[in-house]
Design a protein around this nucleic acid. Structure first.
Lengths: 271, 271
DNA sequence: CGTCAATGTTGACGATTCGTCATTTTAGTA
DNA sequence: TACTAAAATGACGAATCGTCAACATTGACG
């Protein structure tokens, strides 16, 4: 079961990457990352609505014009944060693919990565959510919107390929008249819906009655069973796999997360 | 199969409803609806980010202070729009319950209503999405946040009761160790995830390869099959049910939607 | 009917925030 | 060093937000 999935390094096709030619461009690109990091800190400190361009300008060593040279508007900045989120998410995804197991286990590993990423970077996750809002799409630069689109495709592609793999292996047979794209979309929707609702709910006052940790896996298994993706959850201990994903693939990220939640007293434990 | 579901009139428990005592309060409440309607129009015309308090003040016959008497901030206004959206959604839900059929068909009718509502009021749907964003939760008034919470509960309750019904009827058997709440949440997550992603995608440039109309039903059926909710989709023509929901329950809403999309040239046909 | 307190309304105002652009500075090159 | 293209600056105007002291309306009561 060897993989010819997406190349591991491939972040973005060059077509959309600004050409980084000289030292100059290099420095500018680095500064952009620096600004994004700063923006994250401001958000963490002043709340989501506390992030303003003026604050960012005040916090960095550059002038307003320079900042606006990077981000054409506040929404463009948000979009950039969203892109950053999806890039790190993609890294998580590729890491998840390393989990040793059958295709369905790998898909669950992907979901684990999805949730882990959202928990590790809740601020960035909200940027992604916010970027799905028209307010952002209306005002972000076309260039960044395109980049966002490409990244979305790439993320989806990772998921797609697992479906293709499962079909090739005969573990999954799409019902007549349906394509793997549809199945993949269903999985995506379930993962997104579950994660977004859970995160939004735990932010709100709602004392979550659900066993948050297992919920995503549970929901995914329901759906995958519905697809008849073998082995069915009744014949296989996916909870064991789920835990092993944490132990075998994401040890560092998990301990970092635990460390962090211990300080802030948040409750989103994951293993 | 008679229903003792939530009372049909019940919009909100009085505890959170401002007491409407005299003529005075009545007039104020009406004005609030008028303002919300106006806000919707402004959003439709000037785009999502084009809605500002100043524009709203300019467009209505009242002063800034009066408007701020209704909505403590722009985010509070958004939250109010979100509440309005959920109220009309609740109406759609109750209507969907009138569909004659088994419990699983009724749940699909609920999803039909969910999607139809999102298509009929895309602007309001985005308000709901935006209200899941911390920027809104941070700045909206507590009173309205509470109201939003209650409405969410009510919407969820409708879904819950269908699960209870199915379990009572023996059409659904929760796996050991799971409650109907978990199953209901899964359904909710799937419906939300599918709808949100589809709507966001069709807003973006993405030429949707999916057969949008069937997708939500398809995804729901996958999951319900995974729950072993009888009758399984392999033994029952749910596509027929789905279409009948439109014909038998939502004729008016559908024709209104068609009329509207014909004018604007949008593509979100639903039947 | 007149008075008064409570309630509701007004719009001018200060504080932010946004985004622009004419000017200055810097980096690279001849 | 001189010159040019690219980049940085920050003062500025426009827009938006939300407040508040002054004003108006209502209705209860003598």
């Amino acid at each position: 079961m060897e993989f010819n999935l997406v190349s591991k390094d491939g972040h973005l096709s060059d077509c959309l990457m600004k050409k980084i030619t000289g030292k100059r461009q290099q420095a500018i690109a680095e500064r952009e990352q620096e600004l994004l990091l700063l923006a994250e800190h401001i958000m963490a400190e002043h709340g989501f609505s506390g992030l303003t361009m003026d604050k960012l300008v005040a916090a960095c060593d550059y002038s307003k014009g320079t900042v606006y040279n990077h981000f054409s508007s506040k929404e463009d900045l948000l979009c950039a944060l969203c892109i950053k989120a999806m890039q790190t998410e993609l890294d998580f995804f590729y890491k998840a693919l390393n989990f040793k197991g059958n295709a369905r286990e790998k898909l669950l590993a992907l979901c684990f990565a999805y949730r882990l990423h959202a928990l590790s970077h809740p601020t960035l996750f909200y940027c992604v959510l916010t970027s799905k809002t028209p307010a952002v799409a209306e005002r972000a630069s076309q260039e960044r919107l395109d980049m966002q689109f490409v990244l979305e495709q790439q993320l989806g592609e990772v998921c797609n390929q697992l479906f293709v793999l499962a079909i090739e292996n005969g573990e999954l047979q799409p019902p007549e008249g349906t394509t793997f794209t549809q199945l993949s979309f269903a999985a995506w929707a379930m993962a997104f819906g579950s994660t977004a609702l859970m995160l939004a709910a735990s932010t709100a006052q709602l004392v979550q009655a659900l066993e948050e940790e297992k919920t995503l896996m549970f929901n995914m298994n329901l759906m995958l069973d519905g697809m008849q993706w073998l082995p069915l959850s009744s014949d296989f201990d996916y909870w064991d796999s789920w835990q092993r994903v944490g132990e075998e693939v994401f040890v560092d990220e998990l301990s970092k997360l635990k460390e962090h939640t211990r300080h802030t007293g948040a409750k989103g434990k994951i293993t």
